[in-house]
Design a protein around this nucleic acid. Structure first.
Lengths: 111, 111
DNA sequence: TTCCTTTATCGTAAAATTACGATGAATATT
DNA sequence: AATATTCATCGTAATTTTACGATAAAGGAA
């Protein structure tokens, strides 16, 4: 039994977990930073920038796309990616909510 | 070859990825929230609160401990967990840096 | 001392993740 | 038309993650 019981959690929690997972790999963080620094970015530029094979980078791009953090459109034989700032903002908001929730209830701890 | 090439990334990026991974599961988010709301929390209380077996919860607690986000001390036959707010702040700082970096370089996108 | 409670760890199984080379489809270039 | 470039996807392999039951260790209660 390896079924993830995500149904048992609030949708907010599940969404935060999904977005956190999207940025839980150094390559995917770098990809987001690279795209952001160009506004828009071709797959090839990202591949050049990373110590990973093209197939692997494409896989990471797919993960980011599925999480909604980037979107890509075909431009001739190339793929042009850009950040979805709406989703990124949602991640930011969910994280803010998380930190506020965790920190406001902060209490003494004997560690 | 499935060796993660984390050496190729900056330590900041790797650290952010590690901490993001720690909160990339709904159960682990809930655990942090639960502990925070009590200041300190016994393993059993967390198990009660989650739709997961005790062994699974212990596993998630271990992951959070290894990421440095919580610390636990033995209290009789129980295990008492609390949040490590220093690490949590580091996560917050790394995330802030990430969002600032990504958003300041924000440019037009045709999506 | 004997028994119960608590929880970490072991063993195991299924699925997901990470990585790569090879390939094919689409578009440019010659 | 023939060739080259770009990139998503397929196939595959190793590893990690997620989940659970069973068990053992440690401490408290009887």
């Amino acid at each position: 039994m390896t079924t993830e019981k995500t149904e048992q959690f609030t949708s907010k929690t599940v969404k935060l977990a999904q977005l956190a997972k999207a940025i839980s790999h150094p390559a995917r963080i770098e990809i987001l930073q690279k795209i952001a620094s160009h506004g828009t970015c071709i797959c090839g530029e990202i591949v050049e920038h990373l110590p990973l094979a093209q197939a692997t980078v494409s896989q990471h791009l797919k993960a980011l796309k599925e999480a909604g953090l980037i979107c890509g459109e075909i431009d001739g034989p190339r793929s042009c990616y850009c950040i979805d700032y709406t989703q990124l903002s949602e991640l930011k908001d969910l994280l803010d909510g998380f930190f506020v929730g965790v920190e406001t209830s902060r209490q003494k701890c004997n560690c």
